[in-house]
Structures are given as structure tokens and as C-alpha cells.
Amino acid sequence: MSKSAKRKKWALLIYLGPAMSFLSVFIILPILFLLGLSFFKWDMLSGIYSFTGLSNYLGMLKDPNFYNALGNTVIYVLGTVPLGMAAALLIAVIINRKIRAFSFYRTAIFMPVIVSLAATGIIWLWIYDYQNGILNHILVEIGLGKVNWLGNPDIALFSVMSVTLWKRIGYNMVIFFAGLQVIPTQLYEAAKIDGARAGSQFKYVTWPNLLPTTSFVLIINLIFAFRDFSQIYVMTRGGPIGSTTTLVYYIYETAFNEFNIGYAAAVSMVLFVLVMILTYVQINYFSAKER
């Protein structure tokens, strides 16, 4: 190895070292620990671990609650991510056009982002309340019947998803907005001069130039959607009859109400692998596009 190459290697270590050790202590080690746990049976309290091999994973295959949670997660992700991104993009584009005139709306839309998820949940719990909630008041006011937003197992998941959307749109919007601001105005002017109207400007200028931002937002949103917990915990506790139990909530339930830590770890690993695969596919897709 030449001298300069050696030096380069050292520099790499120095630069990456802190981040790498942080990653390994706070992320990689816990994941490995979790992976290990998933082969055991452990109830957290009694110091008794017993190695059970793959039985946690095999149990999952026969566990209707796991499939229920998986199905709910898929609905939740598919329902919140694309819609949350599309709406955020639309609002960001509109605001970006009339930036000054809209500063009020910008705050209004960003507000949900600052409010913590748990507080959001509590606010919406009140809005959704069957007897006294403002939403049902309005429905009754305009002559429609009450809806049991969080109590009806056919509706509850969608009610929770709406809250997530409400919150996530603001977040996404801010990122999209930042991405839009970076696109040079001259590109739009050039496009105008070339004869492009709003639609074509979006298609040929906004969309391609926003692609890195969109890719980032998509990955973040997917990870968020798979991880969302507080609003479910606060608003529905996974119910009624499991209709809002997503994988994360199911993990919580099995770990902290059932004290079945090993099984929860196994479900966590499934979730982890799922998110890894999706992220990997996306990064590949987008970097191929950029090239």
C-alpha cells in the first residue's frame, strides 16, 4: 500500500469513525440483540431465557393476529404514503407560486408538524368522539347521522390514517417546499418561453428536478408509516377488535402486555427486513433514474 493510500484510509477512519461507532452502538448492536432475542422465549421478568430456535418464526406463520397486523400495516402504508405525498406536493407547488401571499396558510399547514403525535392523538380523540365530538356535531348539524369514527371496526383504521395524513402532509410539505425553492426560477422562465404551460412546467421542470427530494420523502414516509405508533396508542389501542393493530402496535402488545419478548423480537425482525427491502429497492430505483 502506498503512503498516500494509507493516509487516505486513516482519514476515512477519522471522518467516519464517530458516526460509525454511534451507528453500531445505538443501531446495529440493538438490531443484533433483537435478532438474538427472536430465537428465545423470555418474559422479561423472570431471568429465565429458553432457546426455542425458529419456533417464534414458525408460530408467526400460524398466528392470525400477525396476519391481521400485517394486513392493517399494508393498508395503512398504502393509504397514508402516496396520498400524504401527493397532497403535500400539490400544496407545496401552489404555495411556492405565490410565496408571499400564502405565508399564513404555510403556518397553518405546518402547525400539525410541531404538535407532538401524542398531543395530536388527543386532539383528534376529542374531534372524533362519538357523543360530543365536533365532527359528529357537524354531521348532525348538516342532517347526516353520527359516525362512530374510532369505535366502528370498519372505519377506525381510516380515521387513524386521516390523522396521520393530517400530520404528515405538513411535514412533507415543508420538505417539498425546500426542494422547490432550490429549483432555479430561470428554468421555469425558460420553459415558459419555450411554450410550456403550468402542466408541462410541472412535468418537465418541477418533477424531474424534485426527484431527489421526492425519493427522500418517500423513504422517510415509508419508514414513518411502518413505525407509526403514538396515534394508534392514544386513539384506539389497536382496536376495536384489532382493526387498527399494525405490526408496530402488535409488537408493543406482545412485548409489553403479553411479556412475550422473544415473539415480539421475531415480529420486529420481519418488520425490519420489510423496511430494509423497500428502502433498498427505492434507493436503487431512484439512483438509476438520476443517472
Partner: peptide, 28 residues
């Protein structure tokens, strides 16, 4: 602007960065 039949070269060119030269030329 779109209907003026006026073309303009900007000081910093403002080419569409994600397109090839051919696509840039085809665009108008």
C-alpha cells in the same frame, strides 16, 4: 409569454439539467 413567439437566451443559459442536449433542443 408562451404565445409571444419570442425566444430568449439567459445569462446563465438555464438549460434543463436532467435532459440531454437533444431533449433540450426538442423541448420548444
Amino acid at each position: 409569454t408562451q404565445d409571444r413567439n419570442v425566444a430568449m437566451v439567459f445569462q446563465n443559459y438555464a438549460l434543463y439539467p436532467n435532459m440531454t442536449v437533444r431533449k433540450n433542443l426538442e423541448f420548444p
